[in-house]
Design a protein around this nucleic acid. Structure first.
Length: 479
RNA sequence: CGGGGUGUGGCGCAGUCCGGUAGCGCACUCGGUUUGGGACCGAGUGGUCGCCAGUUCGAAUCUGGCCACCCCGACCA
């Protein structure tokens, strides 16, 4: 049954997304344009995302630290490409304590500059390297057009910043983050398959040597950049004077990297898995994994049912993130709908009939309606639920992967490319220039999302120029 | 920054053309009956109609100005 107040995906995908955010109660608008209030459900998702990412970031040897919100204006201008890229979208503080500041302060749009300054003070010797730091922070970018989670003026993220002795080590770090932290997290925890690849020069980070990214496909066939990892070369080391002395007493600039993912991931999670009924949260990140709805008429039945619920859940302690919805005066049907909109993966119903029969009704969020509901024995219920949560996690991933495969076409002509990007990704041989890419963007609104790391063995002809090349790229419209 | 739209109880809207005591649905509060797919009945609370100025005996409604937000595009995690 379509839920009240949720536009269907078929009607208007963009409006559907906004409706899900609102009806699932994940975020609210704020008095400041483009800024968003993250409500408890949205924030609980973020906390779970943080926990899993933070674990991977630490397992790969990084430590958390925190750097200031304000950056002296002059710092931002030290790296030429960097300032050019970010200047149009920074917020600037010119007054403090009622006085004009001697130097305006930029509210960080990203922290390469302020962290670069610190790193220059921290790094002296080859023994100080590699320096592997991460911070969880908010940043501000004055965007023209905003959308909850996908693009907001202020957003939350993590940004890793590292310094290495050699170019090869910096490159290794950049790719390690891409694979072992970002792709691993998004595929395993978010149940969302990603394409891994390099960005073209047009799309790379301002000031980077090379940018790598993971790209995911949303249910409307558009691409969403889920994370980026930059090899900054020596650009920032030179701008901020990050130098070290080698083992044979030579002075060298360090090689730096930076990488980040943001609350945008919540937007990706919503758009990739949810349906016209509401949010579908992947079990591994769902703030509530199992909701129990007790059903009763009289006080006597209530006592009976609640006793069974208490007995069951006592045995589950710690196994699930669990919610017992014993709110009085609300009908079971109302509760089913509410938890469906909020994306809880499993619902367990326990009523008088179940108490007598030793059963419970279990409903899967990812399989709507009767098809996803079954009466199962109370004995062994916890194991059954645990298995179902894993099954849902796997099923969501496979569904998203199948969708991406069905909406990805190999194209060999510009006409085919134009057609393919209407519904999904276009994989094409490419030997064009930056200007050619700009032309295609102008004509089709599609851009090269990634140059996939996995490339074909044999050569083909560039979709635009017709020149022979071995390089394939992915074109798509992006969020 | 261009284009479109909207500002009226917490939310969604009607009323504006044609000026005359601000209304509906949901939500909320209280009482009762209900509860296996969004319960029902009854009684209530709540709004200087985005802001400023003007016209008028009288403005949500007419005139002028301003502001804000949303949606669609170009720029971007």
């Amino acid at each position: 049954m379509p839920k009240e107040g949720i536009t269907t995906r078929a009607q208007d995908y963009a409006q559907w997304y906004l409706d899900i955010v609102e009806k699932a109660d994940m975020a609210d608008y704020s008095p400041v344009r483009g800024c968003m209030v993250i409500k408890p459900l949205g924030y609980a998702l973020w906390e779970n995302i943080q926990r899993e990412l933070d674990r991977r970031i630490k397992e790969t040897g990084h430590q958390n630290a925190y750097f200031p919100l304000f950056i002296p204006m002059s710092f931002l201008t030290k790296e030429a490409e960097h300032v050019e890229g970010f200047a149009p979208e920074v917020a600037i503080v010119t007054k403090g304590g009622g006085e004009d500041l001697a130097e305006p302060l930029v509210v960080r749009p990203t922290s390469e500059a302020i962290i670069g300054h610190s790193f220059a003070r921290w790094v002296h010797s080859w023994r100080d390297l590699p320096l592997l730091i991460n911070q969880w922070a908010n940043v501000v970018r004055w965007e023209m057009r905003t959308r909850p989670f996908l693009r907001t003026t202020e957003f939350l993220w993590q940004e890793g910043h590292t310094v290495h002795a050699t170019e090869a080590e910096a490159e290794e770090e950049t790719l390690k983050i891409l694979h072992e932290v970002y792709a691993d997290f998004v595929e395993k925890e978010m149940a969302l398959p990603v394409l891994r690849g390099r960005k073209t020069d047009r799309e790379k980070f301002a000031g980077a040597l090379r940018t790598y990214a993971i790209e995911a496909m949303m249910q409307d066939g558009r691409a969403l950049q889920a994370g980026t990892s930059h090899n900054l070369g020596q650009n920032f080391a030179k701008a901020f004077d990050i130098k070290y002395t080698t083992a044979d007493n030579r002075e060298e600039y360090g090689w730096t990297t930076s990488w980040g993912v943001s609350t945008r991931l919540i937007g990706a999670l919503i758009m990739a898995h949810s349906d016209d009924e509401g949010l579908i949260a992947p079990p591994r990140l769902a703030p509530v994994q199992v909701v129990i709805v007790p059903i009763y008429r009289s006080d006597a039945e209530r006592a009976l049912v609640m006793e069974a619920v208490d007995r069951l859940t006592r045995e589950w302690s710690g196994r699930f993130r669990l919610k017992v919805d014993d709110r009085p005066q609300l009908t079971p049907g109302f509760k089913y709908n509410e938890w469906e909109v909020k994306g809880v993966p499993l619902r367990v119903e326990v009523g008088p009939r179940d108490v007598t029969q030793g059963t419970a009704a279990v409903a899967r969020r990812d399989v709507p309606g009767k098809a996803g509901k079954a009466f199962v024995p109370q004995a062994g219920l916890a194991d059954h639920l645990a298995a179902l949560l894993e099954e849902i996690q796997r099923s969501l991933y496979e569904r998203a992967l199948r969708f991406r495969e069905e909406h990805t076409r190999e194209v060999s002509s510009y006409d085919e490319l134009k057609e393919a990007i209407e519904t999904g990704f276009a994989r094409a041989y490419w030997d064009g220039s930056d200007a050619d890419e700009g032309l295609i963007q102008h004509e089709t609104r599609a851009t090269i999302r990634v140059i996939p790391l996995e490339q074909p063995e044999k050569a083909g002809r560039c979709v635009l120029t017709g020149r022979e090349t071995t390089q394939q790229v992915i074109f798509a419209r992006a969020y």
